[in-house]
């Protein structure tokens, strides 16, 4: 999946807009987001929802991977405690979230960039409210965009890399 076109707006836009990756459980929060849609409860277009069956499926690796690929924030939405479609998958999510938050703090990622929210299937309004709130908070924090930071970090490798490549070319001649 290398050659991606660059005709997209985000890639060229000067104005930074936060991107939030959201993992929503199928039964509560994803359905609530559907409800928000049906009821036309508008919210900021900065969120990208990835559906999982249960918030318990959200591997902390997914959260880190989203950050590493450039997300400015990650939102996890699950059923309210006691209401989990899978009895208590959301409790596992809650525990992981508490530890992950500590890890992220130590790695310099602000607390507001990871949010866990219990949103029941009927709470369309809460979807809209949560997303708007989070977008606003993350906007105030500014870009995280690790994908770009990684490139900056690795810029220091460029000169030697180029040198090595040119030597290879010479060697092949």
């Amino acid at each position: 999946m290398e050659d991606r076109p660059v005709s997209d707006k985000l890639s060229t836009s000067v104005q930074w807009e936060p991107i939030i990756v959201a993992f929503f459980c199928n039964w509560c929060t994803y359905t609530a987001a559907d409800l928000a849609g049906v009821a036309r409860m508008g919210y900021d277009p900065n969120v990208r929802v990835i559906r999982v069956m249960c918030s318990g499926r959200v591997d902390p690796q997914f959260v880190l991977d989203a950050f590493a690929h450039g997300a400015d924030g990650v939102l996890i939405g699950g059923c309210h405690p006691g209401d989990c479609h899978y009895v208590e998958g959301n409790y596992k999510t809650l525990r992981r979230y508490h530890l992950l938050r500590r890890l992220l703090r130590d790695l310099g990622i602000e607390e507001q960039r990871l949010r866990l929210e219990w949103i029941a299937a009927s709470e369309g309004e809460k979807v809209s409210k949560t997303i708007n709130e989070m977008v606003e908070q993350v906007r105030a924090l500014g870009p995280l965009r690790l994908s770009r930071r990684f490139k900056e970090w690795d810029a220091e490798l460029a000169s030697l890399e180029a040198e090595a490549q040119s030597e290879e070319v010479v060697a092949h001649v």
């Binding site: 902390p60 880190l64 525990r95 992981r96």
Partner: peptide, 22 residues
């Protein structure tokens, strides 16, 4: 199969924690 060793042990350990209240 694992992309991030720390995240994985974190997930496994946290899942096994015996508490429900924050």
């Amino acid at each position: 199969r694992v992309r991030d060793q720390g995240a994985k042990i974190l997930s496994a350990l946290a899942s096994s924690v015996n508490a429900r209240e924050p």
